[in-house]
Amino acid sequence: MTGFTKRAGGISIHAVDVAHGVPASGLSVCLKRLDPDPCQVALGVCAANGHFVNPVSEGEGVTRGLYEVTFGVAAYYRGNGIKLPDPAFVEEAVFRFGIDRVTEHFHIPFKFTPWGFSLFRGGS
């Protein structure tokens, strides 16, 4: 079969505020590709269920390369009326990861508190 192109598997993000046991509704997310061809791939906030709803989840804009996702942790807490030190211990959480097999789906669960966070490649 010639001309057949495999579709990118996508990058999905699910964020949970484990300090309060709730999905991180309104948490800002910025996803960039760093190499090759640096660009912003997705920008927005997590929905009420903590999922980052964006076409990148279905593979739009995803290619092989090095990526960086930034989460606005301190802004999320301040926006929810939580008093934090100034500057906060975690202003932003930044995670760099690589995609080699672009047809695979990359799920990134993000669990956080004002004092720390956990990021990893989860199941699809």
Score class of each variant (00 low, 15 high):
residue 3 G to R: 03
residue 4 F to G: 00
residue 5 T to E: 04
residue 5 T to K: 11
residue 7 R to C: 00
residue 7 R to P: 00
residue 8 A to D: 02
residue 8 A to W: 00
residue 10 G to C: 00
residue 10 G to V: 01
residue 10 G to R: 03
residue 15 A to G: 07
residue 16 V to R: 14
residue 16 V to L: 09
residue 20 H to M: 10
residue 21 G to F: 12
residue 21 G to S: 12
residue 22 V to H: 13
residue 23 P to L: 13
residue 24 A to C: 10
residue 25 S to P: 00
residue 25 S to A: 11
residue 25 S to D: 10
residue 27 L to E: 02
residue 28 S to G: 09
residue 28 S to V: 01
residue 29 V to Q: 11
residue 31 L to G: 10
residue 36 P to C: 00
residue 37 D to M: 06
residue 39 C to Y: 03
residue 40 Q to H: 01
residue 46 C to E: 01
residue 48 A to Y: 02
residue 49 N to D: 15
residue 51 H to Q: 01
residue 52 F to H: 05
residue 52 F to C: 05
residue 53 V to Y: 08
residue 56 V to D: 05
residue 56 V to W: 13
residue 57 S to K: 14
residue 58 E to K: 15
residue 61 G to V: 01
residue 64 R to V: 11
residue 67 Y to S: 08
residue 67 Y to T: 06
residue 70 T to K: 11
residue 70 T to H: 03
residue 71 F to R: 06
residue 71 F to E: 06
residue 71 F to P: 03
residue 75 A to N: 08
residue 76 Y to M: 06
residue 81 G to I: 12
residue 85 P to C: 03
residue 85 P to S: 11
residue 86 D to I: 09
residue 86 D to E: 14
residue 93 A to N: 03
residue 94 V to Q: 04
residue 95 F to Q: 12
residue 96 R to F: 06
residue 97 F to V: 04
residue 98 G to D: 04
residue 99 I to L: 07
residue 100 D to L: 14
residue 102 V to R: 13
residue 108 I to E: 00
residue 112 F to A: 05
residue 113 T to H: 13
residue 113 T to I: 14
residue 114 P to S: 04
residue 115 W to C: 04
residue 117 F to H: 14
residue 118 S to N: 10
residue 119 L to Q: 06
residue 119 L to T: 10
residue 122 G to I: 07
residue 123 G to I: 09
residue 123 G to F: 11
residue 124 S to M: 12
residue 124 S to I: 11
residue 124 S to K: 14
